[in-house]
């Protein structure tokens, strides 16, 4: 087959595929796959990301209320301690209702990894991997990889220092290149393999090559020195356990794009 024809065929199949998938998955957009070097990697460990669908917004309080009505085992009073610590849905007024303190359209927080994972599964989705999340989140409004932009990093750092953003509504930050909102500036988000990159909590020790851990502070091992903001995400992920429910930590789901031959 000549190569032009091949390309055309593939792109036709691809676009049909995307359109059909889009029709089925409301509130999700496609993040086109590619290769990038994550913060903790070295040149030889570039990561390949397949195209996937990602929720445009983080899961909201309202979304999660609907979920627990359907799956009451995830209510505050019934959830297993193993799956969620005592802070689970802590600010809710009752086991079923949000109350006045929380905005219905604010992102759900104080949820454990188990609950987040279950939520996505029940919708036929899953949590993003760290690599997928970081890949989607390195885009700013205009380009797919804004990690080198000083303004982009400064924006993220400023959020880290802005208190109490968890009760802002979803969609209140910027829409990035892929059409996704709130990856930065609202809440932290759970990832499927949040603890795959280990931080011991002693960031200087993590430099030690024997322990083969991610280096949080020193330059060794960090492929992108300017991406200071990302250090903090990895540090945060390293500090949590799967049953932790934290006030500034929410989640969103993704979905694979099945390649039908």
């Amino acid at each position: 087959m000549n190569s032009l024809l091949k390309t055309v065929t593939i792109s036709i199949i691809f676009s049909i595929l995307i359109t059909s998938v889009l029709a089925q998955t409301q509130g999700m957009v496609t993040v086109k796959g590619g290769v990038y070097i994550p913060l903790y990697g070295v040149d030889s460990t570039a990561v390949k990301i397949n195209s996937f669908l990602m929720d445009v917004h983080p899961v909201s309080n309202t979304d999660f209320s609907i979920f627990i009505q359907k799956y009451p085992e995830w209510k505050r009073n019934t959830v297993k301690r193993l799956f969620a610590d005592k802070n689970y849905l802590m600010l809710w007024e009752t086991d079923n209702t949000l109350g006045d303190q929380l905005h219905p359209n604010a992102p759900i927080t104080n949820v454990s990894w188990f609950a987040a994972k279950k939520y996505c599964e029940c919708l036929g989705k899953r949590l993003p991997t760290v690599d997928e999340w970081e890949y989607a989140a390195m885009a700013d409004e205009h380009i797919t990889d804004a990690r080198k932009k000083e303004t982009y990093n400064q924006y993220i750092l400023e959020w880290y220092e802005a208190p109490k953003s968890f009760n802002n509504t979803i969609g209140s930050t910027f829409k990035n290149y892929w059409g996704i909102y709130d990856l930065h500036g609202l809440v932290w988000e759970w990832t499927m393999d949040f603890n795959s990159v280990l931080i011991s909590g002693e960031s200087r020790k993590d430099v030690d090559k024997d322990s083969n851990l991610f280096c949080g502070s020193a330059a060794v091992g960090a492929s992108d020195l300017m991406n200071y903001a990302a250090f903090m995400r990895y540090a945060f992920r390293g500090s949590v356990k799967a049953n932790y429910a934290i006030r500034n930590l929410g989640f969103r789901c993704v979905k694979d794009i099945d390649i039908v031959p």
Partner: peptide, 15 residues
């Protein structure tokens, strides 16, 4: 002791 306590005291918000 290692890290002057840093290793043993790493905690996320609310903990």
């Amino acid at each position: 002791g290692p890290g002057g306590g840093a290793t043993s005291s790493f905690i996320s918000p609310g903990h």
